[in-house]
Design a protein around this nucleic acid. Sequence first.
DNA 1: CTGAAAGCGCTAACAA
DNA 2: TTGTTAGCGCTTTCAG
Lengths: 330, 330
Amino acid sequence: MKDLPSINAVAELADVSIATVSRVLNKSKPVSEQTRLRVEAAVAQLGYRANPFGRSLAKAQSHLLLVLVPDFSNPFYSQIIKGIEAVTRRRGYKILIADDSNLWTDRAETLDLSYFRLVDGVISLTHLDERPELMAEMDTLPWVACSEYPSKGVVPHVSIDHRQAAVDAVQYLLNGGHKRIALITAEEDYLWAQQRREGYEIALQRAGIQVDPNLIRTANDLDYESGGQAAGSLLALPELPTAVFAMSDTLAIGVIKALRRKGKRVPEDIAVIGFDNLPLSSVFEPALTTIAQPMRELGEAAAQILLERLAGGTSESRTLAHRLVLRESA
Amino acid sequence: MKDLPSINAVAELADVSIATVSRVLNKSKPVSEQTRLRVEAAVAQLGYRANPFGRSLAKAQSHLLLVLVPDFSNPFYSQIIKGIEAVTRRRGYKILIADDSNLWTDRAETLDLSYFRLVDGVISLTHLDERPELMAEMDTLPWVACSEYPSKGVVPHVSIDHRQAAVDAVQYLLNGGHKRIALITAEEDYLWAQQRREGYEIALQRAGIQVDPNLIRTANDLDYESGGQAAGSLLALPELPTAVFAMSDTLAIGVIKALRRKGKRVPEDIAVIGFDNLPLSSVFEPALTTIAQPMRELGEAAAQILLERLAGGTSESRTLAHRLVLRESA
DNA sequence: CTGAAAGCGCTAACAA
DNA sequence: TTGTTAGCGCTTTCAG
């Protein structure tokens, strides 16, 4: 394409040394008003912008951040990333997004590890246990986990209290008089899935209700169809549940559609409660009763922690508040 | 954090020159079996991975691509990006995503132009007319536009035939006997909005129906509420339309909800047709009749064109096929 | 306040 | 087949 001016061109035009140009560009040392103006004029005239590779090489930092995400077309994650973006951009960082989803399906492909030489830090929304090649990079760079975090270890993380949130959801159903409450869970690789399941069990036990394994289904994925399948298998039960706690709004919607197709009314015959409070959950009919996660804030908080660490600080993990949102489905 | 080994460390350990190390790393020149093995052993032992900044500086290319997107949490765009990611990752490129949405609302903020010094090429999904600071970068780097493209100029682009797609949608309604067909359009900055509107007008004219400006509403945004508002104002009309063509599925859903709230049945009282075929359009009830855009393929094609250009080739613009998807809403 | 020069980690031309 | 060396564009001592 076109050859771009380098710092040398600027120095020459302004009749100063490249060191001086660097100083005015970075305000790293005092420069006399007069030469500063000359340099600025030269910069403007040439349309000069620094080559980031030269800079990164010299300073050993790139102002690039890596966001590791299981699937960024999932609205839950994309909201979080919005939050991350908003705070990092303001501080002059750019984000590199690595979508991990191909990696799960396609065992052959593994995350290109050169990502980690490129960035100053990483925010991970993905599952890390059993990913030693990723965990190894935690000695190399500052990490922060968001929403999902390694079960053991010392990575600072931001998330809601999934266990308590699940207790709240199930308690709400119990308060409504439900006794046979089904659970649609996701693959329990994810820590949040385990914790929500625990919450489900705790709430039932507190109410003196025995956990019935027949009422628990594991969805293959987090999409509508998986929810529908799980609901279908629930409908085969001799005695039906009167309520369903689905671990995500997308699952809940799949469940509701499947129930309706079989002639069940929601919430009259079977109540359904979801999780996440995605934008579409208020649009779907019946509007979803669900646990709201503060997605944008999760992302913002994670970014803030990372940025502070990058600045030499040492911020800690945070737990943000969830909220029970009452609508029509339960 | 931790100091990472450089190419020097490898060279020393393998007892060769750094040039040789570089050669085995890049397979750029023949190296004897024996020394190659020594180098590889050293690399493995040290866990060496090349510093991308050194490499980029020397080769003047980064294997980074920029994706400019109006709002990546919009499922339409995130599907496209999935397509882009899939093909670029396979070729060893990483993508940097710049979300333009803050820029529209927040006039103060403007896209950090240093993005363009960092990447080898750019794929733009965003509106470029009236963005001279962006257009200027087209002389600097290879660009390809996807879905949206500059009205004039020479950027290769990938999209569907929006005009024809709109004709198809409206024709379908006409075939169903509709004569009063409303249009919910979006801000017509976007070329696709203009073209779809043209398609709407063409189809009506061909049917000998006069375009009635009273039946046309411009939504403020592409979200549910905007669709609802537009529908609300349509309902104030003395004579109601019998069908609505909404320029996106999200608008269509907003429209349907607003109509229902006013006691109108869809499609019996008013038929509604959408555009895009987002995943949720088949889940919503009534399931949306809509024009399907091949989102993933759009992204893949755009990425292929860019990659070929980067490789010295000269691929051209492509128009992909759309598809009318008949479901329940019209 | 300014300039010369070393060095960041790598590639590639040139020599051997 | 291998090594030496000159950059790539920038930041940062170190002198002055």
